[in-house]
């Protein structure tokens, strides 16, 4: 690529990258929070509530992300939900992620040994305290690999937002490709860039995982 192009399109690409990061971070945050709440609600022993949440998760996981985005962005106005592309993108990413995160959290909750909760109950600890101090830390350890994986997947999904005209990196790049007629080179560059980005997110996650599980590791006392 010649340097004139970088001067010309650099700022737009940078801005696009900023939007990508914003969408990803906000989408992850919404997804994690919503997923966690869904997991908690699912533990309440009210059958209809459980069915609704189960259906929500199945629907989100059973349909393409792109269709969800179209529904939200193009279908929304029909029911009075008029969102800007970026807002719709962030919300869509969050909703999409929440179903997967909810399942990850559910598995994590179940993986916390029952005895650890019983010990806390038998000491008279309140549920909020048990959740915060016993269950959550235990969950975090067992769910981090899956959470990181899902966050890496969401990194990749951000490019889909370009289809509903969210001005993120992919969108800016396609504009540039169209204007310069250098489609292949631009896309190849983009591919390499995302490859590195996803790899970086995964690496970071693995580092985090080793850090957070350090206290569990002891040669003579291996715990899965």
């Amino acid at each position: 690529m010649d340097s004139n192009l970088l001067v010309q399109y650099g700022p737009a690409l940078l801005r696009g990258f900023g939007v990508t990061i914003l969408c990803w971070a906000a989408g992850c945050a919404i997804g994690l929070a919503l997923g966690f709440v869904l997991m908690l609600l699912r533990r309440i022993e009210v059958k209809p509530l459980r069915w609704i949440i189960r259906a929500y998760i199945e629907v989100i996981r059973g349909t393409p992300f792109l269709i969800q985005l179209f529904l939200l962005y193009s279908g929304g106005p029909a029911i009075g939900l008029r969102l800007e592309a970026t807002t719709a993108g962030i919300l869509g990413l969050g909703v999409y992620g929440s179903a997967y995160f909810a399942e990850i959290f559910r598995a994590g909750y179940q993986a916390v040994p029952k005895g650890q909760v019983e010990a806390a109950l038998s000491l008279g600890m309140p549920y909020g305290g048990i959740l915060r101090r016993v269950i959550l830390p235990g969950m975090l350890v067992s769910t981090i690999p899956a959470l990181v994986n899902m966050m890496a997947i969401l990194t990749k999904e951000t490019v889909v937002l370009s289809i509903i005209t969210v001005p993120e990196l992919m969108y800016e790049m396609q504009t540039m490709a169209a204007e310069t007629f250098a489609s292949f080179e631009t896309i190849l560059g983009m591919a390499l860039f995302y490859w590195l980005l996803v790899e970086a997110v995964s690496r970071l996650g693995r580092r985090l995982e080793t850090r957070m599980t350090r206290f569990l590791s002891h040669p003579s006392n291996a715990r899965a």
Binding site: V159, V160, Y194, W195, E199
Partner: peptide, 8 residues
């Protein structure tokens, strides 16, 4: 696995 499918 690392590059988004849309880009591929």
């Amino acid at each position: 696995r690392g590059v988004p499918l849309l880009i591929q």
